[in-house]
C-alpha cells in the first residue's frame, strides 16, 4: 500500500514537472513509403513546381498540409516551421519545408506569399497550391485525403534523403520534437 502511494506520488511529480517544461509527446510516429504523383503545383511566387522531382532532393524534406485561413492547427504547424527556420539560421536552406494547401480555391500565389511573410518565412520554405485534382491526388498519395478541409489532420511528413523513406507524424509537435525528428532523419 505504501509503495503504491509512493509510486503515485512519484509518477505525479514526474508528470507535473514534465508538463511544466514542455508538451508531453502526444504525437504518433510511423515509418512509411509513399509514391507521390508527378503533378505540377504552383508556389507563392506563381512558379510551377514539379512536385515529385521537387521532393527527390538530397536535403531532408518536411511536408505539411495547411491552408491560409485555417484556425488552430495550421497556425501551430506553421509556427513550428517558422521557428525551425529561425533556429537553423543560415542552415535553413539545408532542409526543404513544404506547406501544401488543402484550400486551393482560396490559396492563390498572392495569398500564399502574404501567409509566408506573416510567418517570416525565409528561402527554403515553399507554400504550394494547384489544381483541385492535383492537390487531391497529392493528399491521397500521403494517405491524407479529406473531402472537407475542416477534417484535416495535423500531419508532418519527413522524407529521408538517404533512401526516400518517410516518417509520418500525426499530432502537433513542439520545437524540440521537431528538431529531434529532423536529427533522426539526417543522422
Amino acid at each position: 500500500m505504501k509503495r503504491r502511494q509512493a509510486l503515485i506520488i512519484l509518477v505525479s511529480i514526474v508528470v507535473l514537472s514534465s508538463q511544466g517544461l514542455a508538451a508531453e509527446k502526444k504525437y504518433q510516429r510511423t515509418a512509411e513509403k509513399y509514391s507521390v504523383p508527378d503533378v505540377s503545383l504552383v508556389n507563392q511566387d506563381g512558379k510551377k513546381i514539379p512536385f515529385k522531382s521537387y521532393l527527390e532532393t538530397d536535403k531532408p524534406v518536411m511536408v505539411e498540409f495547411i491552408y491560409a485561413t485555417c484556425t488552430t492547427i495550421c497556425p501551430v504547424l506553421s509556427a513550428g516551421f517558422a521557428n525551425l527556420q529561425r533556429k537553423m539560421g543560415a542552415d535553413a536552406v539545408k532542409i526543404r519545408l513544404i506547406s501544401i494547401s488543402i484550400d486551393p480555391e482560396n490559396d492563390t500565389p498572392q495569398v500564399m506569399k502574404d501567409y509566408l511573410k506573416k510567418y517570416t518565412a525565409s528561402p527554403g520554405w515553399d507554400f504550394l497550391s494547384g489544381k483541385r485534382e492535383d492537390i487531391d491526388s497529392v493528399m491521397r498519395s500521403f494517405d491524407a485525403y479529406v473531402a472537407n478541409k475542416m477534417y484535416h489532420l495535423p500531419l508532418t511528413l519527413i522524407r529521408s534523403p538517404a533512401d526516400g523513406s518517410w516518417v509520418r507524424i500525426k499530432g502537433l509537435m513542439g520545437a524540440a520534437d521537431l528538431q529531434d525528428e529532423l536529427a533522426q532523419i539526417t543522422k
Binding site: A23, C70, T71, T72, C74, A79, G80, M150, P154, A175
Partner: peptide, 28 residues
C-alpha cells in the same frame, strides 16, 4: 505554443483559434 515554440502576435493570436465571436472552433 506547444510548450516551446515562441510566437508573436503578428503571426497569430486569439482570433486565429477562438474565432471572432470567441465561441471557438473545431479543426483537425
Amino acid at each position: 505554443v506547444q510548450g516551446d515554440i515562441p510566437v508573436e502576435g503578428t503571426t497569430f493570436t486569439c482570433v486565429s483559434c477562438h474565432v471572432r465571436s470567441g465561441i471557438g472552433s473545431y479543426e483537425g
